[in-house]
Nucleic acid binder design. Structure first.
Lengths: 241, 241
DNA sequence: TTATCTTTGCGTAAAGTTTACACAAACATA
DNA sequence: TATGTTTGTGTAAACTTTACGCAAAGATAA
């Protein structure tokens, strides 16, 4: 981390932060990871202390390799979550002149997708907390706006790339997969058509856990066929619905 | 513009620039506007003098309302082109630690679409020049990378939004429209299927310029039905091909 | 315990979309 | 004058999407 000191420039420079919208899915609802703001270490004054905000923090201009790296580093520091910089999807910059009361701050927003199940334990519950998508509290700065933009980006991306693997537990059911898509796209699909389409992509593998299925009420369990999934992800697809 | 002086911060701050990839279309080829780098006014040292680069420049942290505004302002200063900040599409940030030899500089890349015909006159030919997409010279900094990313973003956006109005002259022909789409998407379409599809969207209006068409060799002239075009743009569509 | 509701799986017919393709007219070129 | 190129138009076949019915068994309520 940069040492506090005197950094002098001939022209005014903004501070740059990297913020993360971390999406998780518990099998029922889309969730977002937020942190409770404490005292800032890096700025001369504090702002929005005690309020909920997106995890993120200042880029260290002297040592962070790039913005995504700064985002990953801050995420780890603030929430305990380890997400490699390469798994962060850049969303957009937010640069309005007064978005931070302390000084000019430009933020580069990112989003990430995590398996909620595997991550809950590793999360630093002291400061971080998961919120249901439709129960987000008031947020510091312009973070509500960032959240909306990140979500609409995810919504857009999902048309071109499969998105379940990153969010679902390894073994899941068709209704869970459908609910995930419905949560992100904010629409309802016909159960049967959805299943047919998903099966056609060839990225699903039935899991045979020995238990003979006695009726249709207990859903079939699937996992992703990783190889086909990755191929489809690279190649892209058209999810039209 | 910010006065040169002493700007002091407790932590290191990067400089922030806004760069623009301006796409134009002359009825045959996709083109990009580049500038020849001269002496920098704003940085202590110069870099890449005499080389071609994307238009753009430093955000003035004290006075630019936001990054898009800075991009618009710099574009005007460097090329004479007036493009409102609202017409710039943000692409991504580029923040690798050594992308500028002078100091840490993070750039926010944008793209814009302009009618080449209407703009040629207004462009400051002293410094700016249009290059065909497949004859781009070596560029300063990481601008070739930015160019590629901006292009692929345009390519992606075109699947969801009609894009001809911004690039074509007011009156154009079906082959021109098709060629534009083929240039951006880098594929070939069947002439007849392309025309059918475009007509179905209901955004084209035949232009009757009095001249009776004597044969099929002279193409029919179209203009966009602005109202339908804007509605389609807001609503989005699926261009699948 | 029984009746009813809900969840899941499977499959098909109808509507819509995409793809592939041929011919005729006139301008351009050799 | 002959040949090639450009443009317009329309249709049949293949494929995709949509809408929907039925049966089995667990869940719930009486």
């Amino acid at each position: 981390m940069a040492k506090k000191g005197q950094y002098v420039y001939e022209y005014p420079h903004p501070a740059v932060t990297a913020d993360c919208v971390v999406f998780g899915y518990d099998g029922k609802e889309l969730k977002v990871l937020l942190i409770k703001r404490g005292k800032e270490k890096e700025a001369s004054t504090t702002a929005y202390v005690g309020e909920w905000a997106l995890p993120g923090g200042f880029l260290d201009a002297d040592s962070d390799a790039n913005v995504a790296f700064a985002a990953s580093r801050e995420l780890k520091e603030e929430t305990g979550l380890t997400i490699p910089a390469g798994d962060l999807h850049e969303v957009a910059s937010f640069s309005e002149i007064n978005r931070d009361p302390r000084e000019r701050v430009i933020t580069i927003a990112h989003y990430a997708l995590v398996k909620l199940s595997e991550v809950k334990a590793a999360t630093d519950a002291e400061r971080a907390e998961w919120f249901s998508w439709d129960a987000i509290p008031a947020l510091a700065f312009d973070h509500d706006k960032i959240l909306r933009v990140a979500f609409s980006r995810l919504k857009q991306d999902i048309h071109f790339q499969p998105v379940g693997f990153e969010l679902l537990p390894e073994i899941f059911t068709m209704p869970q997969l459908q609910n995930l898509y419905e949560s992100i796209l904010e629409v309802k699909f016909d159960r049967r058509n959805f299943a047919n389409k998903m099966k056609h992509f060839g990225i699903l593998e039935e899991v045979d856990d020995g238990t003979p299925r006695r009726g249709t009420r207990t859903p079939i369990k699937y996992r992703f066929h990783k190889e086909n999934y990755d191929r489809l992800k690279r190649k892209g697809f058209q999810l039209e619905f």
